[in-house]
Amino acid sequence: MNDLLAAYGNLIDMIFLNSIIAYSVWLTLSANMFSMATGGFLSLGAYTCVYLTMQHGLPFFAGAAAAALAATAVALILGLPLLRLRGDYFALATLAFTEVVRVVALNWESVTGGALGIFNIPKYTDTAVLLIVFVLAVYFCWALEHSPEGRARRSMRRDETPAAAMGVNIFTHKLALFAASGFLAGLAGALAGHLNYFIGPNDFGLMRTIDALAYPILGGVNSLAGPALGAAVFTIFPEFLRFSNQMREIILGAVFVLAVLLLPNGLTSFRGFRGSRRRERRMGVREKGGG
């Protein structure tokens, strides 16, 4: 058992880490914000935390908190102008942010080590820490979903104009959610920084952002279990398919295309998981209890 745990320890860690990232993305997706800033927030969190712990000797806890707050602050500043954009424009503008962070990380050598990255990072992130943050993230999203904010968000998701007419302040809600998403991603970045001894600017680029978007979309945006399920499947699949070597990426892509075609509302919409699909179709999107 211990051997098994040691053999798959990093896999378990990655599932929790990716799940936390998935909830960060979910917070934006569930309010119709197609944010591609995740990579930028992760990078910001990782470098901030590693810089503070390694260069200034701060404890990991303080570094991670600072990283999360830094990402939140940047999300607020970024959100003010960007949230006036909609749809594709918002996606592109947030993608530009991720790219800007990557280029800054490449060139700010005194802090980030440039292209060489930072190695010999002490490993502070363990499974227990990840589990705790994961549980807190799920609880946060659950509580949010069952608060008046959750109700406002569900109405926004359906159609923003009537929601605004009903008195929902769309902009404030989106800004708060974007900031919360930044907080979670920054925290996840801090955890990622101290997980694998090494970080480099290309760890948190476009690919990482797209992977992060795939987690909740694959799992299902309309369910609280969706992001975690999507992240778990997405993380385990490459390991599961390792026997196929070079074919793996192709199989992985095909499986996801099939999943999206057959289960457009994500894996959690699969009949086995919950109620009938007809009811779902009638309801448009699933309404959670308490609303």
Binding site: D3, L4, A6, A7, Y8, G9, N10, L11, M14, N196, F198, D203, T235, P238, E239, R242, R248, E249
Partner: peptide, 17 residues
Amino acid sequence: GADKAQTVNIFQRLINQ
């Protein structure tokens, strides 16, 4: 797959399993 997390997974599995 030239992926950091996957490489770490592989090392752990090779060593412990």
